Simulated scan of single mutants.
Amino acid sequence: MKKLMTGAALAMLLTGCVTFPTQESEQVKVIWDDVNTIANCQHLGTVMGSEGHFYDYWLHADKDMVWGTLNQMRIKAADLGADTLYLYEPLGFSSSVTMFANAYKCQN
């Protein structure tokens, strides 16, 4: 029983929390299928987000890892002064979620 409790405690320590949005990042729009949306926007950089690890992915639902990944990218985009994220095609995943996007300033 002691080994089981130690293992459970270790798993909880190794498990990261899913990233939640900030007030600033909630203002960043996420788009992925309409390149015309960014035609008159200023490119500010590329951002990456990733949630989950090989040792704890089974503790998180896929939708939560995707949501956390998008939140990470929106936070990074907001830090760049962007108001829009244009997602690349998502990478396939089995134990974590990793995404890339371009950050744009579209509103004047």
Rank of each mutant, 00 (worst) to 15 (best):
T84I: 10
A61C: 01
Q27D: 05
M73N: 12
V35P: 05
G92Q: 10
T46I: 10
L87W: 09
V35Y: 11
D62K: 12
V66F: 11
S94D: 12
D34N: 15
S50L: 08
Y86D: 00
V30E: 01
S96Q: 11
H60P: 02
N36R: 09
S96E: 05
Y55T: 04
I31D: 02
A82G: 11
V47W: 10
G52I: 01
W58R: 11
Y57L: 04
N36V: 00
A82F: 13
D64C: 05
E51S: 09
Y88G: 01
Y86Q: 10
V30W: 03
L44Q: 02
V30N: 05
D56L: 04
M65V: 05
G81K: 07
M48S: 13
T46P: 01
A39E: 14
D64I: 01
P90N: 10
L87A: 08
D83Q: 08
E24Q: 14
G81Y: 07
C41R: 01
T69M: 06
Q27R: 14
T84S: 11
A82C: 10
M73Y: 12
K63S: 15
M65F: 11
T46L: 04
V66Q: 13
Y57K: 06
Q27F: 02
V47T: 01
L85P: 00
E26R: 14
Q72D: 06
W32D: 07
I38L: 04
W67R: 13
S95H: 13
V66M: 12
Y55S: 07
T69W: 08
L91V: 08
G52L: 05
A77P: 06
Q72F: 01
D33Y: 05
H53E: 12
Y55K: 03
L70N: 11
H53Q: 13
G52N: 10
G49V: 01
Y57M: 05
T37D: 11
V30S: 04
A77Y: 08
E24S: 13
S25F: 03
S96C: 06
G45Q: 06
W58N: 11
V66G: 03
H60G: 02
S95R: 11
A77L: 04
L87K: 10
S25Y: 02
G68S: 07
A78D: 05
E51I: 00
L80A: 07
N36T: 09
S50I: 05
Q72W: 00
A39N: 08
L87I: 03
G92K: 10
V35R: 14
T37R: 14
H43D: 03
I75M: 13
I31Y: 06
E51Q: 15
L91G: 02
K76G: 04
E24W: 04
L44V: 00
R74Q: 15
S50K: 15
R74S: 15
G92D: 13
Y86M: 15
G45E: 07
A39C: 02
G68Q: 04
W32H: 12
E26C: 04
L44P: 00
F54I: 12
Q27L: 09
A39L: 02
T37E: 15
N71V: 00
F93C: 11
V97I: 15
Y88K: 14
D79Q: 15
V30R: 05
Y57C: 10
L59D: 03
G68K: 01
G52T: 06
L87G: 07
N40A: 10
